[in-house]
Amino acid sequence: MTVHTESVVRRTAAGRAGLDYDDSAIEGPLQGYHHETYVIPLPPSSDPGAQPRRGKVREPRPGLFWYDRRCFRSEELLLRALQGRVRRIPEIIEADEAGLQVFIEGRTLGQGVLPSGPLSPRHRRQLRQLFGELAAVKTDEIDIERICSPKDRPADGDSAGFLISLIAFTQERVYREHGAPYHSLFGRLGVSDAALEGLKSRARGLGSRPFVLVHGDLHRANFIVDLRGDLWTIDWELAMIGDPLYDLATHLHLMRYEVEEREEICGIWEEAVEAARPDATSGWRRDLPVLLAYKRAQSVYTDVIRGALVLEEPTGGPNRHLLRGVAEQVHQALAAAQPLFGEQAAPTPGQVMDAYEEWFGSRPAVTASAS
Rank of each mutant, 00 (worst) to 15 (best):
Ala160Asn: 03
Val191Pro: 01
Asp143Val: 14
Gly190Asn: 10
His123Pro: 15
Arg202Trp: 09
Arg125Ile: 01
Thr170Leu: 09
Leu199Met: 13
Ala155Asp: 13
Leu185Pro: 04
Pro210Thr: 02
Leu163Met: 02
Phe131Lys: 12
Leu196Trp: 10
Ser159Met: 09
Gly205Lys: 04
Asp193Tyr: 02
Pro154Leu: 10
Lys138Glu: 13
Ala195Phe: 00
Asp217Thr: 13
Asp140Arg: 12
Pro181Gln: 02
Glu133His: 01
His123Glu: 15
Ser120Met: 02
Pro118Trp: 09
Thr170Gln: 08
Ala180Val: 05
Ser120Ile: 00
Phe211Tyr: 07
Ser165Asp: 13
Ala194Tyr: 00
Gln171Ala: 08
Ala203Lys: 10
Ser201Phe: 06
Asp226Asn: 09
Ala160Met: 00
Ile147Pro: 03
Ser159Leu: 10
Gly207Phe: 07
His183Leu: 14
Phe211Asp: 11
Ala194Val: 00
Thr170Met: 05
Leu166Gln: 09
Arg173Phe: 06
Leu127Trp: 07
Glu197Tyr: 10
Leu130Ile: 03
Phe131Ser: 14
Gly187Ala: 14
Val212Asp: 02
Tyr175Met: 04
Phe223Ile: 10
Pro154Val: 13
Gly198Pro: 06
Leu185His: 04
Glu172Cys: 00
Ala203Met: 09
Asp193Gly: 07
Tyr182Leu: 14
Leu196Pro: 08
His219Pro: 12
Ala155Tyr: 01
Gly205Asp: 04
Val212Ile: 15
Arg153Pro: 04
Asp226Glu: 07
Ala194Trp: 00
Asn222Gly: 06
Pro210Glu: 01
Ser201Pro: 00
Gly179Ala: 04
Gly205Met: 02
Ser165Thr: 09
Arg202Asn: 08
Arg124Gly: 15
Asp156Ser: 03
Arg176Phe: 01
Cys148Lys: 13
Ser149Gln: 12
Phe223Cys: 04
Glu177Lys: 15
Lys151Pro: 03
Thr170Trp: 05
Val212Cys: 14
Ile224Lys: 06
Arg153Tyr: 00
Phe169Glu: 00
Arg176Trp: 00
Pro118His: 14
Glu172Arg: 15
Gln126Val: 07
Val212Phe: 11
His219Asp: 12
Leu189Thr: 12
Ile224Gln: 06
Pro150Lys: 14
Glu177Asp: 12
Leu199Trp: 12
Glu145Ser: 12
Arg173Asp: 06
Glu145Tyr: 08
His219Gly: 12
Asp156Tyr: 05
Glu172Asn: 07
Gln129Cys: 02
Leu213Thr: 10
Asp158Cys: 01
Gly157Asn: 08
Ala168Arg: 14
Leu199Lys: 15
Phe131Gly: 14
Gly157Leu: 13
Ala160Arg: 04
His183Glu: 11
Pro181Glu: 01
Leu163Gly: 00
Ala180Cys: 07
Ser208Ala: 13
Glu133Arg: 01
Asp156Asn: 09
Leu185Asp: 07
Phe162Val: 06
Ala136Leu: 07
Leu199Cys: 13
Arg220His: 14
Leu199Ser: 12
Lys138Asp: 15
Val214Phe: 05
Lys138Phe: 01
Ser184Asp: 13
Gly198Thr: 09
Arg128Leu: 04
Tyr175Ile: 04
Ala203Cys: 09
Tyr182His: 13
Thr139Phe: 03
Leu163Arg: 01
Gly187Gln: 10
Val225Ala: 08
Ile147Leu: 09
Arg146Thr: 15
Gly187Val: 06
Glu197Cys: 10
Ser120Gly: 11
Leu163Phe: 05
Leu119Ile: 12
Leu134Ile: 05
Ala168Gln: 15
His178Asp: 07
Tyr182Arg: 05
Gln171Glu: 07
Thr139Trp: 02
Arg146Asp: 12
Ser201Ile: 14
Asp217Met: 15
